[in-house]
Amino acid sequence: EAKQAFKELLKEKRVPSNASWEQAMKMIINDPRYSALAKLSEKKQAFNAY
Rank of each mutant, 00 (worst) to 15 (best):
E1D: 08
E1Q: 15
E1V: 00
E1L: 00
A2M: 07
A2L: 05
A2G: 14
A2H: 10
A2Y: 08
K3G: 11
K3S: 10
K3Q: 12
K3N: 09
K3F: 15
K3Y: 14
K3C: 05
Q4T: 14
Q4N: 01
Q4G: 09
Q4I: 15
Q4L: 10
Q4P: 01
A5Y: 04
F6C: 00
F6N: 02
F6A: 06
F6D: 06
K7P: 01
K7F: 14
K7W: 15
K7E: 14
K7L: 15
K7Y: 11
K7N: 09
K7V: 15
K7M: 14
E8Y: 02
E8C: 10
E8L: 08
E8M: 10
E8A: 10
E8D: 04
L9Y: 00
L9M: 14
L9C: 06
L9S: 03
L9I: 01
L9W: 01
L9G: 05
L10S: 05
L10Y: 01
L10T: 03
L10Q: 03
L10V: 02
K11Y: 10
K11L: 15
K11F: 09
K11I: 15
K11T: 13
K11E: 14
K11A: 14
E12P: 00
E12C: 01
E12W: 00
E12L: 02
K13G: 03
K13E: 00
K13P: 01
K13L: 05
K13Y: 11
R14P: 02
R14G: 15
R14V: 04
R14H: 07
R14E: 10
V15G: 02
V15Y: 01
V15K: 00
P16S: 06
P16A: 09
P16Q: 00
P16E: 03
P16V: 02
P16M: 03
P16I: 03
S17T: 13
N18G: 11
N18S: 13
N18R: 06
N18T: 14
A19Y: 12
A19D: 01
S20H: 05
S20N: 12
S20E: 10
S20R: 05
S20K: 08
W21I: 03
E22D: 14
E22P: 14
E22L: 05
E22I: 06
E22G: 10
E22Q: 06
E22Y: 01
Q23D: 11
Q23C: 10
Q23M: 07
A24C: 10
A24G: 07
A24K: 00
A24N: 01
M25I: 12
M25H: 14
M25L: 12
M25G: 08
M25Q: 15
M25N: 12
M25A: 11
M25D: 10
M25V: 13
K26Y: 05
K26Q: 15
K26E: 13
K26N: 13
K26P: 13
K26H: 12
K26C: 06
K26S: 13
M27A: 12
M27Q: 12
I28W: 01
I28H: 12
I29P: 01
I29F: 09
I29K: 15
I29S: 15
I29W: 14
I29H: 14
N30R: 10
N30K: 12
N30H: 11
N30V: 04
N30L: 08
N30S: 14
D31S: 01
D31C: 00
D31L: 02
D31W: 00
D31Y: 00
P32C: 03
P32R: 08
Y34Q: 02
Y34A: 06
Y34H: 01
Y34M: 01
Y34S: 06
S35P: 05
S35Q: 13
S35R: 12
S35N: 12
S35Y: 15
S35V: 09
S35E: 15
A36H: 09
A36P: 03
A36M: 11
A36Y: 08
L37C: 08
L37A: 04
L37R: 02
L37Y: 05
A38I: 08
A38T: 12
A38N: 11
A38G: 14
A38P: 15
A38S: 14
K39A: 11
K39V: 09
L40V: 11
L40R: 04
L40E: 15
S41G: 09
S41W: 06
E42K: 02
E42S: 06
E42L: 04
E42G: 03
E42I: 00
E42M: 05
K43L: 07
K43G: 04
K43I: 00
K43P: 10
K43R: 11
K44F: 08
K44C: 02
K44A: 02
Q45Y: 06
Q45F: 07
Q45E: 15
Q45D: 13
A46R: 01
A46K: 02
A46Y: 01
A46N: 00
F47L: 09
F47I: 13
F47C: 01
F47E: 05
F47A: 02
F47D: 03
F47P: 06
F47T: 01
F47K: 04
N48R: 12
N48W: 04
N48E: 15
N48M: 11
N48I: 07
N48T: 09
N48D: 09
A49M: 15
A49N: 09
Y50R: 11
Y50S: 07
